[in-house]
Design a protein around this nucleic acid. Structure first.
Lengths: 400, 400
DNA sequence: AGGTGTTTGTTCAATCTTTTTACTTAGTGG
DNA sequence: CCACTAAGTAAAAAGATTGAACAAACACCT
């Protein structure tokens, strides 16, 4: 399901209390170690309100008290932190070549994780396998004694906004799969939040949501793997994921970069994926489906043919990044996915093109932060867990 | 200034009351003729709360009571409408070839408007001229007796988010202009809301905000004129404009459609604007700056050379629309700007390409609504007025 | 050591808004 | 003409934030 927090058009007093408590929790999440007095000034609430809110959050296991801060002439304040021991969230990613699962704390710390290689199969079989692995994860020592807030699943394709329906997963051969419905029967506990989303959306959300300190206004995660997709989160309290009417937002792999170019599996011509993607690299370099693309290429990175192919793909990736810059202009871009492991031969041309052209219009020197994630294995799964947490904090749950 | 409604992290009781009253006003705005009982059920408020809220909104001139509805077995409810006589908003667009001004009611009805042709000049001279025209507009009979909520100005270039600064207007030759600061000294009344935004953003906002009935979740306005830009609004209560880190969101004219293509005025190669834009059409067909592009082309639409040029430009426009579809997937696309007046020779190839390819990925038959605005003259100016209204309803103003 | 000043956090009555409940109003239909 | 239904209003009740007073904890000065 898409984590759509209904915009509370109206509110009663209970809603107001919830709002303020979730604001307190968010502040401590973003800035660990805050005191009640800090919260009061930053949230523009009175000491009394903050005191009451903090007390109930402590009692329910959301916050924990830390050490006394250094005095600045008066009574020192007591630091507040997320209670990392009471709750846990589960996140999973169904990838084209495997399942990835994580359990993590409120701050996003990994408690346990698992990577299960897998060749694509039916949704039903995948769901059953994933359910078994989730049960194992829940039984892990660090996880079992925590209260589980819910499960989030990230999937490699567009998800219908507002309902838990995977519209399409081209690289799995799936279409119109209600994955959560397949998962539920195989799991004992049905309580808590259950949601599913596109993997790039989940990853983007997690990268923004688990950050502390000052956080960017918006963030785009570009996932370069078998296909190419992106996810965008915007705003705060809570960050909102752009999904679009049909869940097609972020399908940048099918933006046209070369009108009249090569045919794409979608039937159109010149899609970005025909220039840069796992499957186009396989096609260009003759690497079979049953072989790992990365494993096949890493030893051959010095080959001139491989270098040339990767450079061309990298230039297309750079164009894609620049087009995102001029379409959504995110405050930060994060680049992940399996292709990142190919390193400089692919990434250098991309980053160089982006850097060279991002400031042409305005003529400024301000650089948009672009971060490359070396090991993106659990990023999407962790992001799905983040969505679970956000859903509890900002959604209709009665746990808070 | 960008209409950024600070996300109210927290709230007191006064905030709650405001929230509920603005929700009532929004409901009546979207569905004129609602009764108090309808509002209560739709907004999940009690009859008493709605009654009190409506009463104060009536007293302050936001709402007016209409006729009695037909009884359905009990006491008939009284219809509520926006009070179209008490308030007014002003909107203006600074275009490359002229100034456009409107004054409108709460529902977006035009009370008065003015179009002033103009050749590009300095920001200072433009501001002084615009101020004079605004004063005239405020003195118009239908406008003068209303309370003016504020002024919004739409500008042809990226506007810095969070501050009233036009970063760049390439076709005016302006850079880093604080236009509101230039405008203020020439206007007598400084109260109310003052804001400025990119013209495509304003247009998109207005198209969504003034709509009644069921409204789309998101909307993209594509403005095809001397340059090509787009604006996106998303969500409701209130609709949010995506501006991006530097105000570059929607600069789709500078997305690359043809790597290694023609040089663009931005210095990069293959930008969409090199394929479809007022300036690229002038260049391709040899039409001078001092001549109206539309007036020059309309008589020559049957020329084979013109047809071919427009068809190619239209195909690029279609690609641009498809790329938007696969990047943001808006619930509705609105196409405006002066180039729309060129009609079928330009638009048919664009719409055909978009229609032929928009469903390739999902394989559905659902069509994204795409509306072409025949006369987009006052769309952006009216949108800026809409932003003023939204800023009063959802912002920190104390008028509501 | 002890007093003073400063800041943190809590307690409690006051205030304000929504809700609940009862009641009035206004029309339909037998 | 009278029951019946639904819309809207006016009271008391419930619940949340606020403001002021108070207690706690530490630094600094004498």
């Amino acid at each position: 399901m898409s984590t759509s927090f209904q915009q509370h058009k109206t509110g009663d007093l209970h809603f107001l209390k919830r709002l303020n408590r979730s604001a307190i929790l968010e502040l401590v999440r973003r800035t660990p170690g805050l005191t009640r007095a800090d919260i009061a000034s930053q949230a523009q609430l009175t000491k009394a309100t903050v005191g009451a809110g903090v007390q109930s959050l402590l009692k329910q296991g959301w916050l924990s008290e830390g050490e006394l801060q250094k005095s600045s002439g008066g009574r020192p304040g007591r630091s507040l932190y997320l209670n990392e021991r009471h709750y846990a969230m589960l996140g999973a990613e169904v990838g084209v070549h495997g399942l990835r699962l994580v359990a993590c704390t409120l701050s996003g710390q990994r408690l346990a994780s698992h990577h299960e290689p897998l060749v694509p199969t039916t949704p039903e079989a995948t769901a059953e396998l994933l359910a078994g692995l989730l049960r194992q994860l829940m039984a892990a020592p660090k996880v079992a004694d925590r209260h589980c807030l819910g499960v989030g699943v990230a999937l490699p394709g567009p998800v219908a906004p507002g309902q838990p329906l995977l519209r399409l997963a081209p690289n799995l051969g799936w279409r119109d799969v209600r994955f959560l419905d397949l998962l539920r029967p195989h799991l004992p506990r049905q309580d808590g939040v259950w949601l599913m989303d596109n993997e790039a959306n989940s990853a983007a959300f997690g990268e923004l949501y688990f950050r502390t300190g000052t956080i960017p206004d918006s963030l785009v995660y570009v996932s370069a793997g078998t296909g190419i997709g992106s996810g965008m989160v915007e705003g705060t309290h809570p960050p909102l994921i752009s999904r679009g009417l049909q869940g097609l937002a972020g399908e940048i792999g099918h933006t046209v970069l070369q009108p009249g170019g090569l045919y794409c599996h979608c039937g159109n011509r010149g899609c970005a994926e025909t220039l840069v993607s796992g499957w186009s690299l396989r096609a260009a370099l003759g690497i079979a489906e049953d072989e790992s693309l990365i494993d096949a290429l890493l030893p051959r990175l010095q080959d001139e043919g491989v270098q040339r192919t990767l450079r061309r793909a990298g230039e297309a990736l750079g164009t894609l990044l620049l087009n995102l810059h001029h379409t959504q202009n995110p405050s930060e871009i994060v680049l992940g996915g399996s292709l990142v492991q190919l390193g400089a031969p692919l990434l250098d041309p991309a980053l160089a093109y982006f850097k060279a052209n991002q400031n042409r219009l305005l003529g400024t020197t301000q650089q948009v932060p672009l971060r490359v994630i070396e090991d993106a294995t659990f990023i999407a799964a962790r992001g799905a867990a983040a969505q679970v947490l956000a859903s509890v904090i900002h959604g209709p749950s009665d746990l808070l």
